[in-house]
């Protein structure tokens, strides 16, 4: 059963077709990876899915609902969370605050009850905290809880982004190059976590990745893009040996 579908998705930037008629569907519970050379339009697809960009054609369907017109701030509440390629954390806040912010989509209190900090707000805060603590434990972030993001090393920030996305309680997790900037060891950790997210938490993952080792380790299916067009879909090994994919990467 498919959780997410992109149907003939397209976007133009001033005459350049960054994404051109891309169709794919992500089944519930799988890890679906998009690969492709630089500038193939992978991140653009993510920005389309999280509604930061306005598609010039095509449809996005999530959980049976058309989300092509949903405003970007409502995406999280629907159950789609994302990470960013170059890390977009709230740098001058603590890790805990970063994760708590991810609970924003689940907020129930109004402005005036927060102004007075009514008991209902306090109760909800404690609930959020418990949800966040579960993720902290899951990703082993306990020791950084009260650190400011600016003081954390790159690898931890990367994990924090993942944690923040998990804190929204997503059904679909979008990971934009989770291994970029990580060393070999950290990349292996990332692979384990992605598998745990899929197996233990039952969250569907849509991923953009360059590291083929990580891709083959965790992905169920892979879509290869080049110049905004899909060139191959299938299991990691099928796609890797597909002649068009080889040509796209090696040229010629």
């Amino acid at each position: 059963m498919s959780l997410f579908q992109a149907d003939n998705l397209s976007i133009n930037f001033g005459g350049i077709k960054a994404v051109d008629g891309v169709t794919f569907d992500v089944a519930k519970g799988e890890v679906f990876t998009i690969i492709g050379p630089n500038g193939a339009g992978k991140t653009t697809i993510f920005n389309l899915v999280s509604r930061i960009y306005e598609p010039s054609g095509g449809r996005l369907v999530f959980d049976g609902n058309d989300i092509t017109q949903v405003p970007p701030h409502k995406i999280a509440a629907l159950g789609i969370a994302r990470t960013f390629q170059n890390i977009e954390l709230f740098e001058h806040a603590t890790l805990l605050q970063n994760l708590l912010l991810a609970r924003h989509a689940h907020k129930t209190s109004g402005f005036f009850s927060e102004l007075l900090f009514l008991p209902s707000v306090r109760r909800k805060e404690l609930e959020h905290r418990e949800a966040v603590e579960k993720v902290i434990e899951f990703l082993d972030l306990q020791q950084y809880r009260d650190s400011f993001i600016v003081n954390l090393p790159y690898g931890v920030r990367k994990v924090t982004e993942l944690a923040r996305a998990l804190c929204t309680n997503p059904k679909l997790l979008l990971l934009d190059e989770p291994s970029s900037g990580l060393n070999v060891e950290e990349t292996e950790d990332m692979a384990f976590w992605i598998q745990d997210i899929k197996n233990l938490l039952g969250i569907t993952v849509l991923m953009v990745e360059h590291d083929m080792k990580l891709v083959s380790a965790v992905s169920d299916r892979v879509l290869a893009l080049n110049y905004g067009r899909p060139i191959a879909t299938g299991t990691p090994s099928e796609v890797q040996s597909h002649p068009d994919v080889v040509r796209a990467y090696l040229g010629g």
């Binding site: 999280s50 930061i52 405003p71 970007p72 701030h73 409502k74 995406i75 999280a76 509440a77 969370a81 994302r82 960013f84 977009e88 954390l89 709230f90 912010l101 991810a102 924003h104 989509a105 923040r164 929204t168």
Partner: peptide, 9 residues
Amino acid sequence: IAAQSMGVH
């Protein structure tokens, strides 16, 4: 941009 993606209007 991250705030928006986390559901902040």
